[in-house]
Amino acid sequence: MLTRRLVALYVGLWLYGTSMAVMIRAGLGLDPWDVFHQGVAGHVPLSFGMVTALTGVVVLLAWIPLRQRPGLGTISNVVVIGVAVDVGLWLIPAAEQLWLRVLAMIVAVVVNAAATVLYIGAGMGPGPRDGLMTGLVARTGWSVWTIRTGIETSVLITGWLLGGSVGIGTVVYAFGIGPLIQLMIPYLDGRLPGFEPTTRPEPVPA
Rank of each mutant, 00 (worst) to 15 (best):
S76K: 07
L180Y: 05
R4I: 15
Y187G: 06
L66I: 03
L180K: 08
S165A: 12
A8Y: 00
S143W: 01
V204P: 00
W145L: 14
G167E: 00
V85G: 05
G82T: 09
T55I: 07
L30Q: 08
A53Y: 08
G127A: 13
P45M: 07
L180I: 11
V155M: 12
D86Q: 12
I75Y: 13
I81A: 12
V137S: 11
V7K: 03
Y10S: 07
P93G: 10
G164A: 04
V102G: 06
G121Q: 09
L46I: 08
A115D: 10
G121N: 12
G39Q: 04
V57Y: 07
P197A: 12
S19A: 12
M23S: 13
V22S: 10
I147D: 07
M105S: 03
T140N: 06
Q68K: 11
Y187A: 14
G194W: 13
V59M: 03
E96Y: 15
V87F: 15
I185T: 13
D86M: 10
R69G: 08
L60K: 03
I177C: 07
E202T: 15
Y173S: 01
G71S: 02
V11M: 06
G27C: 01
V155P: 12
L161G: 11
I157M: 06
M20T: 11
T116G: 07
Q38P: 11
I147A: 08
V44C: 05
L136Q: 04
N112F: 14
L54Q: 00
Q182F: 15
L136R: 04
G27L: 01
G29D: 02
D34R: 00
L162I: 05
L54A: 06
S154N: 14
L192V: 15
T170I: 03
G42W: 03
A62Q: 08
I147F: 09
I120S: 12
V40E: 12
V117C: 08
L136E: 14
L15H: 02
V85P: 05
G17Q: 04
G88V: 04
F36T: 06
I151A: 04
